[in-house]
């Protein structure tokens, strides 16, 4: 097996709940990400799904390096990034860029789009100072915008256009990995597809690896080669896109599949499960399987024994005691009733 481009090796991230000066916050630590092992290979799209608060964004922040994991290592082409210094570290950070969820918030309202795009190019001295303008024009064209847009301010654009600007800004520093943190959830449905197509096109053109984070499986399905499902800071299932869709081995993935608003074709029906309540507190995760409090398939041992990842073949793994049975079930999947 070749060395993955980026490897997260058992990373943990914890936060201390905020108190005031005079009172400590609640005792314990928020375990935002606990024990995630994940590889990202050149040129592939990795979809990460999970509900709000499951640690997706924290994972994204650790991948792009604005947060260091409290425990575990991030390896870039085999090298632990915490050992990188100076220019090497700068080059590593340049190689991984982030696309934000809300393009209105991720661009400085006081700077023209051209200035924003030029910023990364300038910060790394990627082109000669007098060629920066040409580079900006080129980047704008690459994401399907016009060169005149360089002199506009963010408030003069629509959400879809701004998200393109955000992509151009990230591409300016010539990254190898693009982490997209829910890049289309803030956009109108009508422009979502355009942005997603642009990402796919760039991936083919530039050989980018894309980490695509979303809270619904529907969008991820159209984008990803591999899918990772997260729950409460842990990976509960991962595998090739089709395998996860067709034979999901974790009840949580099944619940996410059920949540896709989709009308079954005539003669088919979908058994849906609806998750009750909120995810448990990440300060004090439940014993045993973290999902057992909301799981439709939970049995007695789930509340005491932590499940191990069960191998379902072809790199498809689900962390569930009942992975085999669940993967053979048809919850959340259309099936014929004729």
């Amino acid at each position: 097996m070749t060395t993955p481009l980026l490897l997260l090796d058992d990373v943990h991230q914890t936060y201390r709940p905020k108190g005031s000066i005079f009172s400590r916050g609640p005792a314990g630590l928020v375990q935002a990400v606990s024990g995630v092992t994940l590889d990202i290979n050149a040129g592939e799209t990795l979809g990460v799904v999970g509900e709000s608060g499951c640690g997706k964004s924290t994972l994204a922040r650790m991948i792009v390096g604005i947060e260091d994991p409290k425990q575990g290592a991030v390896r870039w082409k085999g090298t632990d990034v915490s050992t990188l210094k100076g220019t090497e570290r700068k080059a590593f950070h340049r190689s991984i860029q982030l696309i934000f969820q809300d393009p209105f918030a991720s661009l400085d309202p006081r700077r023209t789009v051209g200035q924003s795009i030029a910023e990364g190019v300038l910060a790394h001295d990627l082109v000669a100072a007098d060629a920066v303008g040409d580079r900006v024009q080129q980047l704008l064209r690459q994401v399907g915008l016009l060169p005149v847009h360089a002199w506009r301010y963010p408030h003069e654009f629509s959400g879809g256009q701004l998200q393109r600007v955000g992509i151009a800004q990230a591409l300016g520093v010539e990254p190898e990995v693009l982490v997209c943190d829910e890049p289309v959830s803030a956009l109108d449905v009508s422009v979502r597809a355009q942005v997603l197509n642009l990402l796919n096109q760039l991936k083919t053109e530039l050989g980018l690896a894309i980490v695509f984070i979303a809270h619904d499986l529907d969008v991820v399905q159209h984008m990803s080669d591999r899918i990772v499902t997260m729950y409460l800071g842990k990976i509960v299932e991962q595998g090739p896109c089709d395998a996860v869709y067709e034979s999901a081995g974790h009840p949580y993935t099944r619940a996410l599949l059920s949540a896709i608003p989709k009308k079954p074709a005539p003669g088919y029906r979908i058994d849906r499960v609806v998750l009750e309540g909120d995810p448990p507190s990440p300060i004090n995760p439940p014993a045993g399987c973290p999902f057992h409090t909301r799981c439709y398939a939970a049995i007695e041992m789930c509340s005491t024994v932590v499940p191990k990842a069960a191998d379902l073949g072809d790199g498809h793994r689900a962390t569930c005691h009942l992975a085999e049975e669940v993967s053979r079930s048809r919850v959340g999947q259309p099936y014929s009733v004729v």
Partner: peptide
């Protein structure tokens, strides 16, 4: 803590430059 300041950090813009270019003007 706004996103465009984080975006500048990820792009590799230096701290002082972020302060003078993004934080203070805003």
């Amino acid at each position: 803590q706004l996103e465009y300041v984080q975006a500048a950090r990820i792009l590799g813009v230096g701290r002082l430059r972020i302060l003078s270019r993004h934080v203070l003007p805003n």
